Computed example of a mutant assay.
Amino acid sequence: MYAGRSRVRVMTLKQKISNFKKGNQSMDKYLQGIKAISDELSIIDHPLDETDLVIHTLNGLTNEYREISAALRSRESPIVFAELHEKLMDFETIHHRAAQEAADIVSTANVVTRNKADHYRNNNRDSSPTQRTGERKIVCQFCDKPGHVAKNCY
């Protein structure tokens, strides 16, 4: 009776580790989850070997990790879980830093664009077409009529 339950538990844990995905959780939490399942298998005398642990870990990663996953799979010498853990944590840190820098650039660009638009609106709100460009008269490049530019040509 006990052997049957043990076999079911082994199958349940192996299926759990096979289906375990990183999803939206942090890399640290994901790796802790993988390791916890692996440890449970070891406790019931069915440990995963390093290669299987690494394969399950790589298989559960999201698409943003596909490049590092491919690089790690193609190594001459197989990677051990401890080294994989370190590399994935480093990759996540670098990835988040790059994403934050990209977000900062977009945010800065939006502010600059908004400031330019506000400046243009404020300078042109109550002025005539000739005052908008200093004392030059605006003439449409398309129809040669004064008071507007080609972009706003009617």
Rank of each mutant, 00 (worst) to 15 (best):
N123S: 08
E50Q: 10
G60W: 02
Q141K: 06
D39E: 14
S18Y: 14
Q32T: 13
Q131E: 09
K22H: 05
G147L: 04
D90Q: 10
D52E: 07
R7Y: 08
E135V: 09
P146L: 02
A70L: 04
H46P: 07
K151R: 11
R136D: 09
T62L: 03
A102G: 01
I43P: 07
D28R: 15
L58M: 04
R125P: 00
I68S: 01
E67Q: 12
L61F: 04
L48H: 13
G60F: 03
A98C: 04
Q100L: 03
K151Q: 08
H85L: 11
Q15E: 06
R121E: 04
P146V: 05
R5A: 11
D144F: 08
S128K: 15
C143G: 12
H46I: 03
V10D: 00
F20E: 01
D52N: 11
T108H: 09
Q32Y: 11
R121T: 06
V80G: 10
Q32W: 08
N124S: 01
Y65D: 00
D45I: 06
Q25S: 11
L72N: 00
I44R: 14
D144N: 08
V8C: 03
L53M: 11
L61S: 02
S38C: 12
K145Q: 11
I105E: 05
G60C: 02
R7D: 01
K14F: 12
Y2S: 14
H85S: 12
R73F: 05
R9K: 14
H119N: 15
I105R: 12
A82F: 15
Y65T: 00
A82L: 06
D45F: 07
K29H: 15
T12Q: 14
E40Y: 13
